[in-house]
Design a binder for these strands. Sequence first.
RNA 1: GGGCGCGUAGCUCAGUGGGAGAGCACUACGUUGACAUCGUAGGGGUCGCUGGUUCAAUCCCAGCCGCGCCCACCA
Length: 938
Amino acid sequence: MLEKNFDFAEAEKRIYEAWEAAGLFRPTGEGEPFTIVIPPPNVTGNLHMGHALNNTLQDVLSRWRRMQGRRVLWQPGTDHAGIATQMVVERQMMERQEPKRTEIGREKFVEKVWKWRHESGGQIINQLKRLGASCDWSRERFTMGENGAADDQMVKAVMKTFVDMYNDGLIYRDKRLVNWDPKFETAISDLEVENIEVDGHMWHFKYPLAGGETYEYVEKDEDGNVTLRETRDYISIATTRPETMLGDGAVAVHPSDDRYAPIVGKLCEIPVGPKEHRRLIPIITDDYPDPNFGSGAVKITGGHDFNDYQVAKRGRIPMYRLMDWRGAMRADGAPYAEEAEKAREIREAGGEPEANYVDTINLVPDEYRGMDRFEARKKVVADIDAEGLMIKVEDKKIMQPFGDRSNVVIEPMITDQWFANAEELAKPAIAAVETGDTKFIPENWEKTYFQWMRNIQPWCISRQLWWGHRIPAWYGPSKDIFVAETEADANRLAEEKYGEAIELKQDEDVLDTWFSSGLWPFSTLGWPEPSAELETHYPNSVLVTAFDIIFFWVARMMMMGLYTQKEIPFPEVYIHGLVVDEDGQKMSKSKGNGVDPLELIDAFGADALRFTLCTQAAQGRNVRISEARVEGYRNFATKLWNAARFAQMNDVKPDPAFDPASATLTVNQWIIHEANECANTVTRELEAYRFNDASGAIYRFAWNVYCDWFLELAKPVFQGSNEAAKAETRAAGAFALGTILKLLHPFMPFVSEELWDKLGFDDALITAAWPQADKGLENADAAEEMQWAIDLITAIRSVRQEMNVPVAAKTPLVFTGGGDDAGKRLQIHDDVLKRLARLSEISVADASPKGAVQIVHGDAIAALPIADVIDLDAEKDRLAKERAKAEKEIAVIDKKLGNEKFVERAPAAVVEEQRSRRDGYVAELEKLKAAIARLEDL
RNA sequence: GGGCGCGUAGCUCAGUGGGAGAGCACUACGUUGACAUCGUAGGGGUCGCUGGUUCAAUCCCAGCCGCGCCCACCA
């Protein structure tokens, strides 16, 4: 006999280990392949609610398809997560007071990270197992392979892709303005920058014209009337970043801006630093400045601003790097005096600089050198103010870029980096979604995807880190580049070029982590080595992920998959929501509102957590999680457990000889019909990725149909003496319960597997066959008849409570009307009606007895002769209200049917439906009138 | 500025061109041998507002109001 409750803490571990030991997570059989690759969690990661949701959904799909006989591969693994991992290990080194990364050097550091990875990385794998994830762990992969060695297949995949793309001209080295993270001292991609609105200032400064020159400054209103006229010896510019003034290359105004027309082409002075060394910069025209914003004049700092960079490129304006890699003002190079003279000479000679980027020149004056950029800002402002050149300062909300991991202000910086031609790579990736080869579910995410892909920027793929795939590029003398999969290959290329062996130096940088993640759908399957798995499992079947990594990951996989495999990585992408807290707030470490899935698993079991996530996973919505909800679904597991316990007590067990299509008792025909319906629903909803509807359907069937009604209806049978009926009901009950367990298994794998075993079903539930739609099990008549009985019972219960009939009191039932079937039905369901509606006896009559409570049930009256307990007036009121309701319904329908246009234009079926509804209400109304008349008779 | 989405019962949310739903919460009653992690019954909503399309609108369309998210270079 089953215990009273499911001991999930004990069972989950045992069951999971048994599944895994039996190899049940591996793809087997000859069925159609079904493949999902896990979004590889960071190797540093711990299971958070987002993982729990994401992996629950994948597990539901995997288990369901596995039961359907598909050859399921759920491919697991972890991501090496460049910055995150390097951070974790560096922090650990600091805590242990070990020498810093830079002190021990690259090789030793990378060794340490590998050691960390093997000793304490990948905790999340065990956490996924606790969730019940049925991944094929024997195939677990890491984005850097076992040890990052050149002959490791995962490494080869990355190297081959890089080299191929380089040779195809899709990867190139370039000096460009990139997002620089001064904390981690590396470039990051656009996506890793978070723009946050912060309180800032906008300063307005005077840039004096060279040589004290003056001009007539005239402002006009919309109608051309002069509103201001004065003589100026300066041009007014506005900036939010005064510290970058030292790198200005020009001041730009719009070509149509008449105010500045007199001084375009002239020089003005950057009013920072010792006067004798100040640079003069030209006033130029460009379409970029908006004449209606600020003064209409913009300082152009091509080396530290993305807009200015574009202007500077167009206008061949020099760009200067002002800061070092930590975001402090440069302290390198010769003193400013000498260098600034050079710059001035270049400019004053009137000749075009050879290159418009000048990083050899450090323009920072002595008193600013080595100063943090924000300190420098203060000083610049103070100095200009002291000189009387500050016009005003405004408080202003400004969008400031922050590194998403470092949380420090990103500095646009001109550096040498590797770029992928994302625009080119995106073309087939866009086309694949346009043609429908890859579909997003819900569909609206396709817009988001398109919007980003169609405006995609070059992808900076190099990172100035040590942990990651080192870029397979080697440099020879005079900056010749040899890109090859291995050093040996690079040496060979160099030898061919130079005619002799030359010592090469490998690029110091590593690749963006997402570069290797982008290969995940096929690198995990063995590519680039020959691989049967790749043949079988690529393209994957579906990708399940959250919308926040559509750009980071999904888009990259599309690009990389189409590039390397010439085939889409997956035909479907299911995008689920984010997990948010009870208040709808995104869970985050900084807010401290995160709920730990492992704690919930400890408290309520993995099944309860999984089920909660599924019921909340409606398309296009975030998933709210609260402990109360999880507790509620733990109760569901308990309910089911007790239903099984009851079944067991009544000898309900699988009967292999039982053919559900041959059931003879209405109640059994009905529950088999309902089970079949439920299976159809769950299957249909899963096919459409409607996890909430699928889990809701199984919940309702298990609780509200099987437990609430079937088991109650079966009780009289089990307690009766009809052995044949008992046997059939046991078998039918077991059949329906078996269906419930099967349908529930993808959602609640543990409790379902445990009950499956305890109830004596064969083999493991995880490998049981998913219920197929079966027309032979449908029985509309049985369903109608049971609904009739259920409605009658409910109606009687309702009236009894309303009349305050004591629970223990049993009353007779006198049934009137209802046609020929009624008598038969009353007889068939005699036991059940008496038991569930608390009836002493049931009889049929031509009219209700006097002084009875009368319940109108369709075209019949069920009367309870309990004159002594009823309040006559209250009963009259009750019936009158019902009559009014019926009359109102009829009136509404009559209005419709009386509308010629409705009868004319509405579909015949709709009109017919209304007529039939009217008939129903009319019959009910007649009975209500009869009941009221009977009451009046008293 | 562009894009996506949301406003339905006290709360959280499903849902559909033709009869307003669930869970939780709440109220009453209940320990009838599966289950009090439970049972039975009940109250509760002008489906954001205004127009339009339609025989018919909570649902489709437009506008408005309120809210959320993503992307974006206004110095």
